[in-house]
Structure formats: C-alpha cells, structure tokens
Design a protein around this nucleic acid. Structure first.
Lengths: 338, 338
DNA sequence: CCTGGCACTCGGGGGGCCCGAGTGCCAATT
DNA sequence: AATTGGCACTCGGGCCCCCCGAGTGCCAGG
C-alpha cells in the first residue's frame, strides 16, 4: 500500500505535468509543492511509484510522467470534481437559453463544451428508446403515397415516405391516423410494436395493404432512430495535443468520424456520475492516448443521452469533469422546461 | 503573353509538384516530361514565369513551386476536368442507392466525397429558399400550445412549438390547418409571407391571437431555415497536408467549424459548373493555404444546394473537380427520383 | 532562340561536442 | 526505519560547423 505522502507525490506529479506538459523532476516538485521533505526523499517515493507502475520515465535521465494507471488513481482517489465558477455557470445558462429547437440545443451544447474544456466535445442526441410518442401524422401526398411523421416527447421529428401497394383514400388515411394515435400517443417506443400489431386486421380488406405498409414503416423508423446520432465540435483543439502530433492526431480524427465508435464509447459509460476512461482503457486504438470524460443527461431524473469530451490523457481532470457535469445538468434542466 | 511552351512548363511544374510535394527543378522537368528542350531553356522559361508571378522559389537555391496565380492559370487554361472512371461511378451510384432519408443521403454523400478525393468534404443540405411547401401540420398539444410542423418538397421537416396568448380549441386548429394549407401548399417559400399576411383577420376575434402566433412562427421558421445547414467529413485527411502542419491545420479546423464561413464560401460559388477558389482567393484567412472546389447540385435543372471539398492548394485539380462534379450529378439524380 | 558550360548559393543532413537536469545509491544523521 | 546531503553517472537536446549537391543565373557559342 502506498503511504499518504506517496499519494501526495503522485498528485503533485499529475498536477505539474498537466500544467507544464513536461516530465517533472524531484527538485521541481519540492519547490512547487510544500511536501516538507527533501528531493532525495521524493526520489525514493518516485522510485516506488514507478515500481508500482503509476509513473514512468520517458528517458533514463528525465523526470517522470504519469502512466494511465497513475491517472486512474489520481481520478479515483486523489482529485475531486472541481465545480465551475458562478460566472461560468451563469454564462452556460445564458448561452443555452437562446435555443429554439432540439438541433439548436445540441449545437449550442457542443460548442459550449468545446469552449469550456478546450477539448473536443461530443453530444449525443436524446435517445428515442426512452422516449414516448407524442403524435403520429399521416399525409396523403399522392394516391398511393403517404408521408409518415413521427413526433416524440423530446421534440424530435422523423419523417418517412411510404409507398402503398394500393391507392388509399383521404378518409382511410384520416381514419388510420386517428386510430394510430389513439393507440400509441403517449406510449413508450418499446410498447409500440405490441400496440399496433393487429391494427391492419381492423381495416377493410382494400386498405389493409396500405395500413400494413404504414405500420411497417413506423416500426422501422423506431428501430432506425434508436441508433443514435451525435454531434462533434472543437476538433481544432486537437492541435493543442503535443508537438509530435501528426502521428497522434490522425487516428483520433479518424475515430471521431466513426460515429459507431463514439456511440459505443458513450454507451459503455453507465456510471450514474461522471465516467472517465483513460488512455488504453478505451478499446479503440486511435483513442489510446486520449481520455474520454462523459456523463448522461436527461430531463427529470432519467438519462436520455450522453455527452462528453475527448482530450489528451494529460488533461485537467477535475476541471473537465466539473464542466461536463455542469453542462449536462443545465441541458437536462433546459430540456425539462421546454 | 506566354508562349505555348511556357504554358507547358507551368503545367508540368504543377503536375510534378502535386505529385511529389517537392519543389521541382529544371532538370527533373526535362526528364519527366518530353519538352524536347534542354534544362537551360527551361530555366529561362521558369525565370519568365517567375517574373510574371506564376511560380516562386521557396529558397534561393531550390526548385520552383506554383503560386496561387499559377494554379489559377493551370485550372483555367491548362487542365480539363478528369472524368471519373466507370468503376468509380458505379461505386458512387451503388453507395448512394442505400439511402433511406435526406439525412442519410447527405451523410453518405459527405463520406463518399471525402473518400474519393481524400480531402475534407462539405455538403450543404438542400436549400429551402427554392423549395416549396408540401404541407403544414398543426397539432394541439395543450390548450394554449400548438406544434407547427413544416414539410418541404425536398423531404425536409421542421418543427416549432408555438405558445398562444389564449387557449384555442381543436376545431379552430383544424380550421387554421386547412386554411393555411390551402394557401401555402405547393407554393414557394418566398411567396408565403405575402400569402398568409392577412390570414388572422379572417378568424374570430378570440382566435386571432393564436393565429397570429402560429403565422409568426411559420414565417420565422422559413427565415431561420433558409440559413443553411451543412455536414463536414474527412477531416482526418487534413493530416496529409504537410510536415509543418500544426500551424497549417489549426486555422483550417477552426474555419471548418464556423459554418457561417463555409456557407459564405459555398454561396459565393455561383458558377454554373465547378467553381475553384484557390488560396488567397478565399477571404477567410484560415483558408489562405487551401483551395475549395465546389459545385451546385439539385433535382432537375435547378440548384438546391452546393457541395465541395477543401484541400491544400497543392491538390489534384482535374481529379478533384471530376469527383466533385460526378458526385453532385449522382446526388441530384438520386434526389429527383425520390 | 536554344544550348552547354560554369561559378555561385544555400538549405539540410550528419557528426561531434558540451551542458545540465535528473537519477540512483550510499553513508551519515535524526 | 525514515530522511537527508553528497556524489558520480547518464543521456537527450541544443549548438556549431562543415560539407554536399541540387538548383540557379549568366554568358558565350552554335
């Protein structure tokens, strides 16, 4: 087990390294932190920390830098979440207040996060899985063509064209619209398949084909839209990564473009609080030198989606976690109001 | 006026430089291109080209590289558009064919363009300005709350919440829906304000407030959504820029995140064919070392939006122009069919 | 107008050198 | 047993210098 002072030394190393981006030596540590011991003592501690795998030396005669394991310990036991300052909070709230629709909320959120953390921000659109249907609208555009519009309680709207096997009259469409809504309005997505299962049977034979087509499309839409979308911003912040970075930045950009990767990444973060994945804890290779800080957000107490940031493992964890948490809270609040 | 051979020399310089990324000298030129003159002659030509500002030397004793002006001449007079190969065309068509909705089309297009050109792709969502209204839907969600859904002929759907000053009944909503649609359905966006101007007056006094609110929101939506949205992809290709590139890449990434800049950029390209803006021809400073190749696309013969790529000024112009043009054509075709 | 010859330029790569931050270890001290 | 000062050692990075060779401009002759 590591002594209290050794933990302090590790904390100091992380803090200094995050600040200066340079390996930190024993002398500098004693000068910048009041550890009340001599450099030699710190050296012994550092040797011990290195044995345990918390820190490493880039070259033989250089200072130490934290390893992924070191950051992990730092995040878990040595650092809290640094709350955002009051002016910052006010700015966040103010910035979100101008949003007019869901796209706008997400767009503002991503810019906000990127700016606050000076890192790459990722915001997932509210999930439809937990959502309920607010309304289903049908529009007869042509004899055998119907447009299906699905409106969710999170304010999201999806539309699909439906080509019917036979022409259907306006009246039938209106009828179907009414019956569909009476069954599914207010219901959870997951319930919908069960609720509309036998709907076609209650229609005249001549309309049955069209009804089936509409219902099928509705179900498809639900499934398809459960695959989340997300928005990314602040990629310019990647340039602050390091000096060597053609090699570093490329795989990160590639990973960011693969939405699947990111969705999986966010999906794994099931922690009720802020989740931090450090370096190699991320499965995707391109993200092995980055850390992902994410958290769920939602209106009320349920999580409808996640948001987070991607940055170098050498990041200000307390500050980033604070910003991520605060933004999530305000976005949730904002969604609940609207 | 430049002699024919000097133009050939310029063309050769551009081609070689684009291929090798290194300044090209007189000897290499005579070897790799059958100019049938000696290096000394080429040197004279190069001196002339430099006097005219078409090429420049990075250092005194180095080969030449094209200037923006040189690329301009190359694009305008020395190079055609290189059509895509048949297998490539087939791949494009096949790749687009799977798209299910507008978002999907745009998403696929951007990935396609990025992959084909190995550069950053930008695709603008079909413009609403030229669009017509397909349908306006109103949903009474609460006594004094109405949801407005606008459906365009390009398949785009926009929704807004409307808070009415007074409660309004289902019947009034249905009435308004019918009257609204009879006036604006099938009409161009630009016509709508004129058409709905006096709509409120034809309603009972008690509903007039609500009607005004709905109409106001509709007009707002039209204006707001005329500000286009766009999608970007392939940013990882920026890493192929050059060796010096922390300095180069950063402003580009920043510019790409400012949608306003990009929209303006695409907006300026009014040429009926492929438009190329080279280096400093781009107003935005961050894009001074990039070229933008863009073209309009649309269903039928009218342009509903633009798409293009952003890459280093040192790019394969004929190939890029060919890819951009082909993709635009196929996307337009695809939109027309759906 | 083209060409071969020639002197000149200068960026970049390679080698060698030195400096100093940082280390590990040890003996002395508390 | 923990801490400390002392000390020898390591080695990456910066610096200087030198040289090479691709490339140039110019000129005189074809």
């Amino acid at each position: 087990m590591l002594s209290e002072r050794r933990l302090q030394v590790l904390r100091a190393i992380v803090q200094d390294y995050v600040g200066t981006e340079e390996p930190v030596g024993s002398k500098a540590l004693t000068e910048r932190h009041s550890l009340n011991v001599s450099p030699a003592t710190v050296r012994n501690d550092m040797a011990a920390l290195e044995d345990e795998g918390y820190i490493a030396q880039p070259h033989t005669s250089a200072g130490r830098i934290p390893t992924d394991k070191g950051y992990r310990l730092f995040v878990d036991r040595l650092a809290g979440v640094k709350p955002m300052s009051v002016p910052e909070r006010r700015a966040v709230q103010h910035f979100l207040d101008g949003a007019v629709d869901l796209d706008d909320v997400v767009g503002r959120t991503v810019r906000l996060l990127a700016q606050l953390t000076r890192q790459v921000a990722v915001v997932q659109y509210p999930s439809l899985t937990r959502s309920t249907v607010r309304h289903v609208e049908l529009l007869a555009l042509a004899p055998a063509r119907v447009m299906l519009v699905l409106i969710t309680d999170t304010g999201r709207v999806e539309q699909r064209m439906v080509d019917c096997p036979d022409p259907v009259g306006e009246a039938s469409v209106a009828d179907l619209r009414a019956r569909l809504n009476s069954r599914v309005a207010g219901q959870r997505f997951t319930e919908v398949p069960r609720l509309v299962q036998d709907l076609a049977e209650s229609f005249d034979a001549e309309d049955r084909g069209a009804v089936s087509a509409v219902v099928a499309t509705l179900l498809e839409t639900l499934v398809e839209e459960t695959e989340e979308r997300l928005l990314i911003g602040g990629t310019a912040n990647l340039t602050r990564f390091g000096h060597d970075f053609p090699l570093t930045i490329r795989p990160v950009l590639e990973a960011l473009e693969e939405q699947v990767v990111l969705l999986k990444l966010l999906g794994e973060a099931t922690d009720p609080g802020v989740t931090v994945r450090i370096g190699h804890e991320n499965e995707h290779e391109g993200l092995n030198s980055t850390s992902v800080v994410s958290v769920g957000y939602g209106s009320g107490d349920q999580t409808v989606a996640k948001l987070g940031v991607v940055g170098p493992t050498r990041m200000d964890y307390p500050g980033t976690m604070g910003a991520v948490r605060a933004v999530a809270r305000y976005v949730g609040q904002f969604l609940a109001e609207s």
